[in-house]
Design a protein around this nucleic acid. Structure first.
Lengths: 349, 349
DNA sequence: CTGAAAGCGCTTACAG
DNA sequence: CTGAAAGCGCTTACAG
């Protein structure tokens, strides 16, 4: 331990309704009702009590009120890894929307691991959250099925599941995104397009692949499975795979990466091998992180409107929590579009 | 709203201690003690009760237990903006450490705004968090002073305050970092070093400036105030400032930016004006984000060990929560070092 | 080793 | 318009 200084410890007991009641002569009940602006309290009483609360620096004990009312005004967001900008932007947007509705947000990482995801869900449930926004981790939907059995409202964000017609979800139009990315490269003359995809248990991975294949077929380019790779989205996965591919001498002139971080890693790795982007290889990413940060490398990328997607997920969760339209499921597919920058160029004839 | 499907709504009431008590014939008290592995429960009873709990899928109600025990096993992390990788990495590390100690983490953004910071603190307090890790927002320490008066344990992360001898903090050695960055540029022959700094109410801003000045003085280079700029750390701030500087024709050959995001934005802006890094201008950043993400632009940057810093802050918070060493304050200054990449080069003679 | 009672700080439902 | 009582689901402190 570093520098350590002596202090006087502050011991402060939080003000409760009881304190306000004692100091105003009303009962705890009346104080509670006055502070919540209930209609059947006289104006004078309300003012008096609210002033006293202000004076004492009263901060309500949400825990206690939740225990009785059944609502915690708390939600949990469960993502693979907040340190991935794609998720941190979503978390920011959700926290921001939640705050405006007076909800507080738990953040939990699942690291694409089924066990950690289950723990995260249980952790959220034991905190009695009113609802959960979750990007289901790769590897299957057992945890989500469990979550559904508990009856706690939740919304899937960014990925859907096989049986998702009984759940709410907000996803991007990943098939269109995959199509746009591949078509862009095809139109530039590329034929050997390496797809650095994520695990096929992730719906967006499957759908982007469908889009890729669709574009290839439309242009009459045969689909070669050795060009389609499933890679860990964890940092370092692309580097290892790409090294192997280059050693195997598999020819390719363009890369379509599952997300921008993987695209960056691909470019980084290529550069290490003195291969230049876009001079030697064209690269397309997904997520358009560049719209939020001025990354100095101008990456062509599929934009999936994280702000809109996140806010939509929160809105739906609110509806679900407040039991509106309980017979309906909300299935939102947010449009994607291609943002062309300087990481892609035409293949020389 | 998009596609909407009818469903059967699941209504599930959570299992409580009472349910387990009824089904085993013991009282709620005994059930509680058995599940918490208290010593004065017979082995047979413990096993029976734990099996029944497992069978019923019992998930404890933390809220209820907190109300009685006074501990929520919940912490809050308050940062300027989780979508900034510097903070999202810290949040990830803290959440990860917290989970291992069975703590759950609230995330709150202050956006460098005093009012939002106050609301975030109140929100955390009303959730009865056991402790708070906070990166104090720019503009003064009134909110932290308020937080201290409440008696809730907290640790400052990344920034300290004037009166911080009465608080715990973990910061980087910012002065050393500023010194290393400036000295590196000076050794490369640069003299007109533009410092794109953050607001002076941020301690790390003041300390990095002190390091910058120290290096300049050591090399006998006069300090010119027009080269030292205070800029909003919000995305877009650098671009505007830099445009203005270029229009004013103020000459500079190198930039030292308060953080990597600002450095990236500077490079992005320079490139837009057809100025190349490092050919025309050298750039040094701070935070070394590149160690966590394969950003394809190799930025020279000051590394400040976010993993170590975050974990340290959590450890100290734990000590504070558990009232260890209450007479001492923990003041940690984590070492910084320069990581030289390709964004800096010697000034031509 | 187990139980009966009280209480954490609120809100709810009802009485007057 | 205000109050007295009960209760949310646990844990604590004590009794036996």
């Amino acid at each position: 331990m570093g520098d350590e200084t002596e202090i006087v410890r502050h011991i402060v007991k939080a003000t409760t309704l009881k304190d306000i009641a004692e100091q105003t002569g009303y009962t705890v009940n009346t104080v509670s009702r006055a502070l919540k602006n209930k209609s059947d309290i006289s104006e004078a009483t309300r003012t008096l009590i609210q002033q006293k609360a202000q004076e004492l620096g009263y901060i309500g004990n949400t825990m206690a009120s939740s225990l009785r009312s059944g609502m915690t005004r708390t939600i949990a967001v469960i993502v693979a890894d907040v340190s991935n900008p794609h998720f941190s932007i979503a978390v920011k947007e959700i926290e921001s929307a939640a705050r405006k509705h007076d909800y507080t947000t738990f953040i939990l990482n699942s690291y694409e691991d089924q066990d950690l995801e289950e723990k995260a869900i249980i952790s959220a449930l034991s905190k009695n959250v009113d609802g959960i926004i979750i990007c289901p981790s790769q590897g299957g939907g057992q945890n989500i099925a469990f979550l559904q059995r508990t009856g706690t409202p939740f919304v899937l964000l960014g990925r859907r599941l096989d049986n998702d017609d009984v759940m709410d979800y907000v996803v991007s139009d990943d098939e269109k995104g995959g199509y746009l990315a591949a078509m862009h490269l095809l139109e530039l003359g590329h034929r050997d397009i390496l797809f650095l995809n994520a695990h096929h248990s992730i719906s967006s991975s499957r759908e982007r692949l469908a889009g890729y294949k669709h574009a290839m077929e439309e242009m009459g380019v045969p689909i070669r499975n050795e060009l389609i790779r499933e890679i860990s989205t964890i940092s370092g996965g692309v580097r290892n795979e790409l090294k192997e591919i280059m050693e195997s001498k598999l020819p390719f002139t363009a890369i379509f990466a599952f997300n921008d971080m993987m695209a960056w890693e691909a470019i980084f790795t290529l550069n290490k091998h003195h291969i230049r982007v876009p001079e030697n290889i064209s690269v397309v990413g997904f997520d358009n992180i560049q719209s939020r940060m001025f990354i100095p490398f101008p990456l062509t990328s599929v934009s999936n409107s994280k702000g809109k997607t996140s806010r939509k997920a929160f809105e739906i969760l609110m509806k679900r929590i407040h039991k509106q339209n309980t017979e309906l499921r909300y299935h939102e597919v947010v449009d994607t579009r291609l943002v062309i920058r300087e990481s892609t160029r035409a293949l020389p004839e």
